[in-house]
Amino acid sequence: MLAVLRCVIRRDLLLAARRRSDVLTVLLFFVIVVSLFPLGAGPEPALLRTIAPGVIWVAALLASMLALNRLFAQDHADGTLEQMLLSATPLGLIVAAKVLAHWLVSGLPLVLMAPVLALQFDLPLPYFGVLVLSLALGTPVLSLIGAIGAALTLGVRGGGALLALLVLPLYVPVLIIGAGAVEAMASGLGAQAYLLLLAAFLVVAAAFAPWVAAVALRISVE
């Protein structure tokens, strides 16, 4: 069983490595969206410092949603998904492996890129740790919840926009707590409670979301 999961992760990473442009597109989208905010809201450093966590989080949310389409669509189109559905390994575990691989190529780069963007917003250095940690805990939750949406909208017309409509409302708690972590630290409250809450979200989502997505996949492929 572990061999199957390792094989799925390895295959998805290999595919991403051969299609680097897909990964780069998401990362560039993230950078561009974040860079647009100072142009729209004005360059006052005080204002930028206040909105920085929210802007970076919202942009990460949109970027990770943009990447969701790829999670199952290609496997669905070429028939690999049917093979996964007929595997002797429980589908929930395969989905979990796919989500992990997906996060490594679409979520992790955002986490690593965030400090650079925070510099643009003049965010003080001590906050960088909390920002990165909150994104590192939060973006996997986004991928996990997003997997359910991606599974439900598989092969449906207007899939992309529909996916956004389904998934974005469910992202709200992660956004609030994630961006809140940095803001709480800025207001001197300490970010620990927020980070623990994000970690709790991650544990719950990791335990349940792959199985829900597996049910959704079986419904969609039928």
Binding site: A3, V4, C7, V8, R11, L14, L15, R18, R19, Q74, A77, D78, G79, T80, E82, Q83, M84, L86, S87, A88, T89
Partner: peptide, 24 residues
């Protein structure tokens, strides 16, 4: 199935190894 369940970006050997592993 009707679809070949193989990936354009992988080599023939890689594809076959993956589908065998998935199939158990």
């Amino acid at each position: 199935g009707h679809a070949n369940a193989i990936k354009d970006d992988l080599t023939a050997a890689e594809n076959l190894a993956v589908s065998c592993t998935l199939g158990g």
